[in-house]
Design a protein around this nucleic acid. Structure first.
Length: 483
RNA sequence: GGCGGCGUAGCUCAGUUGGUUAGAGCACAGGACUCAUAAGCCUGGGGUCAGUGGUUCAAGUCCACUCGCCGCUACCA
């Protein structure tokens, strides 16, 4: 029994929820549910990142305020979490007053590592961003996104002395105090750290970007959105004074996508060290999801929304595919063909049908009475280790070993023959075993497919069969969906 | 340019510290059965383990080089 704090990264609200967001929600949910099942006290936090120039710009285009835009988008992410049955305890918005106030406290606490400096670089007003010398040269001095020349801009910004934390961060990662998984990502991070981190700009002039948290004591500057957004992981549990913060920090694990690994493996630890706080115990970095082998994009015409899949196949099928068939340590691919194959073969035919045939036999041969159910005991060490390592795909492989094993058992025992031989005791024994095995599977499945697990448990409740109104995973016609 | 990874059956991938006939799932083919969502079970075909050369009694597994992919990172002129 211990306290377990897990976070996802906060989606930036400049775009609609996509498959990657959904997958990250689901991964966090598995860890949270698993920890709760084990008896831990859990805080699982997710939310939305809402400040910054891009949001302000997009809102202006839509002729609404940044906050109105953020409200709209936040609602979408919240809804996605809901329909996926994500069991988050918190949903933080970086525009929450509590976050903004605590962000300012953090700034002040980091004051000793903050200094004012000049930042100069090539700027594109269209992108509201700076570009490197190399990029500018590569494009012959003209921004390809907006077809306008880059401007040489000098800004006065606040800087954070990230450089001084290079060595302690590196040591933490090398020692495993901050475990970065998978190992390939860990190596990449260490490679970055090897050369030393540079101090980073952490504010923007308010005249350029006003949609942000004000820098304490300087009305002309707002915090750079990244710097401020990272703080959510501690503001949401009440840094610095709340009891919860003291009980739950450091986080057991933080989940992020590979595009923002650097922020979480370098800048965020630097901030924490500056605050004198412990680093999270684990950082899990997942990959990207392609569609039909290509990067998903609306312009390529291969865009698939989470809703589209969930509406057709349900949340558990969605969870299943993205946990088992998107490699936990790599980029993965979604295709309707593969999804439907997984759904029909594995969920409907193997798991769903195993439940169905067991139910049918108990009803037919024993009037729905199961009797004593011996608890099945398989070795689940591999399963547990896989979850510990965020190897969600392997954990489900382990569960499916049992599903297959059960189907084999049924075919070997042939309960229908035992029934013909009128050996009631033996028959009862076999069917009770099947039930026990299914209940064990349901237990293992619970963090991954919560609704399915609950249904299986309900079917065999109290030694009696309570037939499902609808099969677990009804088969679908395998007509390829129009995308 | 630096660091790292990958290239194994049609497809997606496992292959521990080098050691008997190289594995799984999907797909494909055949078979026996009938409790079940025409599901499940059994059997089988199919690979010069990218290439070349080496170390070794023995290499998919170690070394060198070549070819082809990819990631991170730096940046010349």
């Amino acid at each position: 029994m211990s306290n377990y704090y897990v976070t996802t990264s906060l989606p930036y609200v400049n775009g609609e929820p996509h498959l990657g967001h959904a997958m990250e929600f689901v991964m966090g949910d598995v860890l949270a549910r698993y920890a709760r099942q084990r008896g831990d006290t859990v805080i699982f936090s997710t939310g939305t990142d809402e400040h910054g120039g891009k949001i302000a710009e997009k809102a202006a285009e839509l002729k609404i305020t940044p906050k109105e835009l953020a409200d709209q988008m936040e609602a979408q992410f919240r809804k996605l979490a809901e329909i996926l049955a994500i069991s988050n305890d918190r949903f933080i918005r970086t525009t929450d007053h509590g976050h903004e106030q605590r962000a300012q406290l953090i700034w002040q606490a980091l004051k000793k590592d903050i200094y004012k400096g000049k930042y100069s670089g090539w700027y594109c007003t269209g992108d509201e961003a700076f570009f490197t010398e190399a990029e500018v040269k590569a494009n012959n001095g003209v921004c390809p996104n907006h077809n306008r020349p880059y401007e040489k801009v000098q800004e006065e910004n606040y800087f954070f002395k990230l450089s001084k934390y290079t060595i302690p961060i590196r040591k933490s990662i090398e020692s495993g105090d901050l475990a970065v998984i998978p190992a390939t990502k860990r190596n990449e991070i260490l490679n970055i750290l090897k050369d030393g981190l540079e101090d980073i700009s952490i504010s923007r002039p308010k005249e350029k970007i006003s949609w942000g948290v004000p820098v304490p004591g300087d009305s002309k500057q707002v915090m750079y959105v990244w710097f401020e957004a990272l703080m959510n992981y501690i503001t949401v549990i009440g840094y610095p004074e709340q009891k919860e913060f003291k009980l739950f920090w450091p986080a057991a694990i933080q989940i992020v996508g590979k595009d923002i690994a650097r922020f979480h493996a370098a800048i965020w630890p630097g901030m924490l060290l500056g605050l004198g706080l412990a680093l999270p115990r684990k950082l899990y970095i997942h990959g990207f999801i392609n569609v039909d082998g290509k990067k998903m994009s609306k312009s390529l015409g291969n865009y698939v929304s989470p809703d589209e899949i969930i509406n057709k196949y349900g949340p558990d099928a969605f969870r299943y595919y993205f946990l088992r068939h998107i490699p936990s340590y790599n980029d993965g691919d979604f295709s309707w063909q593969h999804f439907e194959a997984a759904y029909n073969n594995e969920l409907a035919d193997e798991l769903g049908n195993a439940v169905q045939r067991t139910v049918a036999m108990i009803q037919r041969y024993q009037d729905g009475i199961i009797g004593d159910i011996p608890p099945a005991k398989h070795d689940i060490a591999q399963y547990e280790q896989a979850i510990e390592d965020c190897h969600f795909d392997r954990a489900l492989d382990e569960v499916w070993e049992q599903v297959r094993g059960l189907n084999q058992y049924i075919d070997e025992e042939k309960p229908w023959e035992i029934a013909k031989q009128d050996d009631a005791d033996h028959l009862r024994e076999v069917l009770a075993y099947q039930t026990g095995a299914l209940l064990e599977i349901a237990g293992l499945l619970a963090p991954f497919l919560p609704a399915t697990a609950a249904k299986i448990q309900a079917v065999f409740k109290d030694g009696l069969v309570h037939p499902l109104e609808e099969t677990l995973f009804p088969k679908h016609d395998t007509k390829p969906a129009k995308s």
